[in-house]
Design a protein around this nucleic acid. Sequence first.
DNA 1: GGGGGTATGTTATAAAATAACAATAGGGGG
DNA 2: CCCCCTATTGTTATTTTATAACATACCCCC
Lengths: 164, 164
Amino acid sequence: MAQEIPNNIFCQHDHRGCRATAMRGARAACRAANLRLTPMRARVLEILLESHKALGAYDILARLRAEGRSSQPPIVYRALDFLVSNGFAHRLERLNAFAACAHAEDRHQPMFLICESCHQVAEAPLDRLGQDIFARATKLGFQARSPVVEVSGLCPACQGDGEQ
Amino acid sequence: MAQEIPNNIFCQHDHRGCRATAMRGARAACRAANLRLTPMRARVLEILLESHKALGAYDILARLRAEGRSSQPPIVYRALDFLVSNGFAHRLERLNAFAACAHAEDRHQPMFLICESCHQVAEAPLDRLGQDIFARATKLGFQARSPVVEVSGLCPACQGDGEQ
DNA sequence: GGGGGTATGTTATAAAATAACAATAGGGGG
DNA sequence: CCCCCTATTGTTATTTTATAACATACCCCC
């Protein structure tokens, strides 16, 4: 069923398994690195994993509140800080929003494809492009640390729709 | 005096001339394209051109107010919208800030080098990297429209400073 | 079972952006 | 010249995103 486009969440896939794998991976990684995936942090990650859309911090906050946890912005931002700094989630700069990491298991530089129509976000490895960006920066005398690559456009499913 | 690193504003350069050229270019481009570079828009562009740092909308607002123009956020945002959509300025997504365009004369895809120490922002042409990003997106079935590439790091002058 | 570090809870506020509507300015056609 | 149309600027209020500062609770280790 899943199309043969690697690393692309736009295609049909077993999302339940996708979520479960990610959560298991995160738990394992935390155990290995002696990080504490507390209930709060785990819950925020689960919420991010529910879809491949990016969520604003206040969207997550609303979800937590709907679940009865009294919650305030700093709580969400702190959980997100944890998830982002340990590679379990990413911040999308163009959207001021966050998405679960699709490949937390390997250390990678991500590149994001953001569908302007359905708002899904796919993460692809930057690979050689990242090296090329570093090389270009170096040639300009700049010591690059962290590159952000975010591409807006239309995902496979939304192309041809009259831009709904 | 200016080093031989092309398209790089980090090196010493005649900034007065840099500014004047950019303003002249913008005026000419507006005349050619029948766009109105009104006093307000021109002033905002001048403010952006005063340095190669990115300015937040509210920094610009404060400048305008200091000059006696009564001004409110929408005025600044509208001027910035004009400048950005016509290629005279860019928005830096990572910084929620704006910088004058260094190469408004040619239509290009920009890449930004952001110094974490002195906060100067250099704009380099994305060139082939942009095409590579498009190609990668296409291979994943994604129809790319606008790529954002922003690299944080250290500019030539700030490397070796113990990170001040 | 007390102490120190980490995490969460709470209040308040800062920073960035936009909605909605009013007033005004410029520019072509009568 | 004047009127109308449109683009721009002005103003008020509000929304959205993010953080500062400090209190409380939790947990592991000794």
